[in-house]
């Protein structure tokens, strides 16, 4: 890969608009969303129910069509792609994904080994090499070789999600989209998977980490984008978002996270922020700082 390839963002979303429904039922799921992910960067996308975070993930994976705007993945403009072109793109392993429910990203009839090597076989990698790579990535998500013969149904939730991460990794994609990857896991497994994501980040894999949980994202992401009612209201370095949130919604989000200290001191403040957000119409929401 040439040098100017490396300087280009691996994901460039510009002014993305996604609408669902027709005519009077038309609803805006995403509005004017712009986001870049540089090579080797981990960007967290924080949003709650209905914020449009999963729509963003699906748009970037070609699973929903953008109404307008532009999506560029690894230098390739994919905005107008047909479903065949998207499929080809996913097959080439340019962009991979991990969903909340690993059973959605794993074929229930394939063993762990088959799941891991399938994307490589499709790409024409010889079987022996594919098997070796599958094994290497299984080790990377800290699972033992003896799971290779198991079906997804025979694994625990935490093991399944690790296999899903390993499967996303084998084709060494330019970008991995993780949509709520740790939300269905108990705390021990969550910590385990987050550790793996940190290692990936440190190894230079580009990640988009979508979650409703600020606490999970902040330790992994370099930058965080806050989605609220279909718009990115704030983007910034992860720690700045937590320590000095600018938008009222971000402040409410940070102020609402349960911490191991009394939050009663900020109850009045939360009330004030809620009233403020309620009073503001979408039109006069402050732009990102």
């Amino acid at each position: 890969m040439s040098d100017d390839d490396d300087s280009r963002p691996v994901l460039d979303v510009a002014d993305l608009e996604v609408h669902y429904g027709l005519r009077r039922r038309r609803r805006r799921a995403l509005h004017g969303v712009s986001l870049t992910v540089n090579r080797g960067e981990t960007v967290g996308v924080i949003g709650e129910t209905g914020s449009g975070k999963s729509t963003l993930a699906r748009a970037v994976l070609g699973l929903v069509r953008a109404t307008s705007g532009r999506i560029t993945i690894a230098g390739e403009e994919v905005t107008g792609y047909s479903s065949q072109q998207w499929r080809a793109l996913r097959r080439r392993g340019v962009v991979q994904y991990v969903f909340q429910d690993p059973l959605r990203s794993l074929d229930p009839d394939l063993t762990v080994e088959e799941s891991l090597i399938e994307p490589l076989l499709i790409q024409g990698v010889p079987r022996a090499e594919a098997a070796a790579r599958g094994r290497a990535y299984l080790a990377r998500v800290r699972l033992a070789d003896d799971l290779l013969g198991r079906l997804p149904g025979e694994l625990s939730g935490g093991q399944r999600q690790r296999v899903a991460v390993a499967r996303a990794l084998v084709s060494e994609p330019s970008l991995i989209i993780l949509d709520e990857p740790v939300s269905a896991l108990d705390s021990a497994n969550r910590v385990g998977v987050l550790e793996i994501l940190k290692e990936l980040r440190d190894a230079g894999v580009s990640l988009v980490f979508i979650s409703h949980d600020l606490g999970s994202v902040v330790g992994v992401a370099d930058r965080i984008a806050v989605l609220y009612q279909g718009e990115i209201v704030e983007v910034g370095p992860a720690r700045t978002i937590i320590k000095a949130p600018g938008h009222p919604y971000t402040r409410l989000l940070v102020g609402s996270a349960p911490t191991l200290r009394s939050a009663s001191a900020s109850r009045a403040e939360r009330e004030a922020l809620r009233a403020l957000l309620h009073a503001r119409t979408e039109a006069d929401l402050a732009p990102a700082r």
């Binding site: 910590v191 902040v218 937590i242 320590k243 940070v254 996270a257």
Partner: peptide, 12 residues
């Protein structure tokens, strides 16, 4: 410990 590892405390 688990909470502190992935809660917001350490940033706040």
């Amino acid at each position: 410990t688990e909470h502190e590892q992935y809660g917001l405390e350490r940033y706040l």
